[in-house]
Design a binder for these strands. Structure first.
Length: 267
DNA sequence: ACTCAGGTATCCT
DNA sequence: AGGATACCTGAG
C-alpha cells in the first residue's frame, strides 16, 4: 500500500538516529524494518510518498502506532527555534520521529548498547535473534521473548558477542519470564518512578534506563546523555541545557542533537 | 597491534 | 556525593 505524509517522516533520519537497531537499508531508499515479531518493507518514493508491503489492516493496527503517526512532529520541531545551535540540529533532522518500539526489545537492546559501537550493537542483536528468535521471513528472525532467552542454551547465547552483558540479559529475561503484564504495571508509573524501577535491573543505569523510557515507553521528555550528547552539550551549551523550555519534548530535542552532531563529526 | 565504543557497578576518598 | 577503574568483545 502507499501513503503520503505531510508531517516529518524521513526513513534515513530515523534509521540513523540511534533509536532503532533493526532498521536496515542498502540504498537509502528501500528499508527492511523489524520490530519484535513483525517485519515491514518500506520505500521512499519522493515527495512525501512511501510504499509499505503490508495490508491496510496491518498498517492501521500496528505500523501506524509504531511510526507514532498521531503526533505532529513538525510542530514539536518549532520548539527548537529558540536556540541557534538546536535550530541548526533540528533543520538537519527534518523527518525525525520517535518510534513506539517494543518495551522488552528496547530493554535488551540498550543493555547490549553499553560500551559498544552501533555496528557492534547491531551485530550482537542479530546474532541473538538468530540464536533464539523465530524465523519470520527469509533469514529474518524475530526478537526473542524473555521465555525464548531463558530457554536458550548458555553456550549458544555466548556466541552472540554479548560479553559481560550476557548475565544482565539473562537476569532481565528471568525477571520478565511469565510476567508479560510486568511492563503494563511499569506503564502506569510516572517518569521518575519508571526510571528508578528500570534502574533496579542489573546493567541498567541512568542512560540505558532513559533510552528504554524514551524509545520503549514513549516518554518523550527523557533526555538520554551519551558520549555524543555530552560532547555537544559541552561545546554548545556551556551554561547548561534549558530543559524547561522544551518540556515535555526534551527527548525529541535530544534526537535532533544526537543525529545532527554525530553525523557532522563522523568522517 | 591498538584504541575506543550510545555505560555501569564497584570501590575508593 | 564525587572520582577512578575494570569490564567482554568487535569495529576501524
Amino acid at each position: 500500500m502507499e501513503k503520503t505524509f505531510t508531517d516529518d517522516f524521513d526513513l534515513e533520519v530515523i534509521a540513523n538516529s540511534g533509536q532503532c537497531f533493526r532498521f536496515n537499508t542498502a540504498d537509502g531508499i528501500n528499508y527492511t524494518i523489524i520490530s519484535s515479531e513483525k517485519m515491514l518493507h518500506a520505500a521512499s518514493l519522493g515527495s512525501g510518498r512511501f510504499s509499505f508491503d503490508c495490508s491496510k489492516k496491518d498498517f492501521d493496527s500496528f505500523w501506524s502506532g509504531y511510526f507514532d503517526l498521531e503526533t505532529d512532529y513538525s510542530a514539536i520541531r518549532k520548539l527548537a527555534c529558540n536556540n541557534d545551535f538546536l535550530k541548526k540540529c533540528a533543520d538537519r533532522s527534518v523527518g525525525m520521529r520517535i518510534l513506539k518500539q517494543d518495551k522488552w526489545e528496547m530493554t535488551v537492546s540498550f543493555i547490549i548498547s553499553q560500551r559498544k559501537s552501533i555496528p557492534a550493537i547491531k551485530t550482537s542483536i542479530e546474532r541473538l535473534c538468530r540464536v533464539c528468535g523465530r524465523e519470520i521471513g527469509d533469514g529474518i528472525y524475530s526478537f526473542p521473548t524473555p521465555r525464548e532467552i531463558c530457554r536458550a542454551p548458555v553456550d549458544k547465547l555466548a556466541e552472540c558477542g554479548l560479553g559481560y552483558r550476557l548475565s544482565y540479559i539473562r537476569e532481565a529475561a528471568d525477571l520478565f519470564y511469565a510476567k508479560k503484564d510486568e511492563f503494563e504495571r511499569l506503564s502506569l508509573l510516572d517518569d521518575e518512578e519508571l526510571l528508578s524501577e528500570l534502574k533496579k535491573m542489573q546493567g541498567v543505569g541512568d542512560k540505558v534506563a532513559s533510552c528504554i523510557a524514551l524509545f520503549g515507553f514513549h516518554r518523550l521528555n527523557f533526555f538520554p546523555k551519551d558520549v555524543w550528547i555530552n560532547r555537544a552539550l559541552g561545546e554548545h551549551f556551556p551554561l547548561g541545557f534549558d530543559h524547561d523550555a522544551y518540556n515535555p519534548y526534551n527527548g525529541v530535542m535530544q534526537q535532533y542533537i544526537f543525529y545532527a552532531y554525530r553525523n557532522s563529526k563522523r568522517s
